[in-house]
């Protein structure tokens, strides 16, 4: 029996009869991935116009990007804010996820719902709301203000990822440590935390990326010397198509692909252990 007429699923349908599904899926996957990758060749074009495939190749857009103090400062800001957001959201996320997971209190469900509101509230509202509130206390255009707002966005993601990690871990191990005399804090750091480390790292990376890629809050709340990369990119996209954006986009695609592969790797490692 060749592959074509072999049964492909529990219903005994053959691979041949569902060839259309394979073709369709391949097309959809191509549609998903290709647009993200198209910016890579574009960024190495020598042309002012975005032709594909580029007729001549060069690094001029990378030189433009690396040589511009505006883009460099924005990149530094984005990395700084992303990093600080990660440092705020990850420990807060661990604490909240652990508390909600362990506690039998009646209020946990309500608290969980409150903590995930940043996922439900449209970001534009968070953006104009913080912009207004920050205006009152003079926190617009500050790094601290942006980090705080981005931490609110990253928290639900961190909490959900870490909760998933806690769920696949046997909490009785921590109880054993405590019955042997360890305090709850000590038991957590010695026993629980090392076991959920992969979810914690994933949560940290996602927190960083949430901040690094965030556009709308950055448009409103960041500015001046503290404007983020995404704020400048958005402004550039609205006005004209600048090929420098292709170079920056390529760097961002490489960054997020690297982080994605890292979490996949950690995830498979976490499952094996």
């Amino acid at each position: 029996m060749n592959w074509w007429s072999r049964p492909a699923a529990d219903t005994q349908i053959t691979h041949g009869r569902r060839l259309w599904l394979y073709v369709l899926s391949a097309i959809i996957m191509l549609l998903l991935v290709a647009p993200t990758l198209i910016v890579v060749p574009m960024s190495f074009s020598d042309s002012q116009y975005l032709e594909f495939p580029p007729s001549t190749w060069s690094l001029r857009w990378y030189e433009e990007y690396l040589g511009s103090s505006k883009w460099m400062r924005a990149t530094a800001t984005s990395f700084q804010v992303g990093f600080l957001t990660m440092l705020v959201a990850t420990p807060l996320g661990i604490m909240a996820a652990y508390a909600l997971f362990v506690s039998r209190h009646r209020a946990t469900r309500a608290i969980f719902l409150l903590l995930i509101t940043p996922m439900i509230v449209p970001v534009i509202l968070i953006a104009i709301g913080t912009f207004y509130a920050y205006g009152r206390v003079g926190m617009n255009n500050t790094i601290a203000g942006l980090v705080l707002a981005h931490s609110a966005l990253a928290l639900p993601i961190a909490i959900i990822v870490i909760t998933a990690g806690l769920r696949s871990y046997d909490l009785s191990q921590e109880q054993v440590a405590r019955s042997l005399g360890a305090t709850r804090t000590r038991a957590f750091f010695l026993i629980t935390l090392p076991q959920i480390r992969f979810s914690v790292i994933t949560a940290a990376l996602l927190s960083f990326l949430t901040s690094f890629d965030e556009v709308i809050i950055a448009i409103f709340v960041s500015g001046g010397a503290n404007a983020t990369l995404t704020k400048h990119m958005f402004a550039a996209l609205r006005d004209y198509i600048d090929p420098t954006i292709a170079a920056i986009s390529t760097i961002m695609v490489i960054l997020s692909s690297a982080l994605l592969l890292l979490t996949q790797f950690l995830g498979s490692k976490g499952k094996r252990n």
Binding site: L32, P35, T36, V215, T230, F234, S249, L260
Partner: peptide, 14 residues
């Protein structure tokens, strides 16, 4: 997952 993790601004630009 690759597009999911890639900045929405980059994909819009693409």
């Amino acid at each position: 997952l690759l597009p999911f993790w890639t900045s929405l601004l980059v994909r819009t630009y693409a």
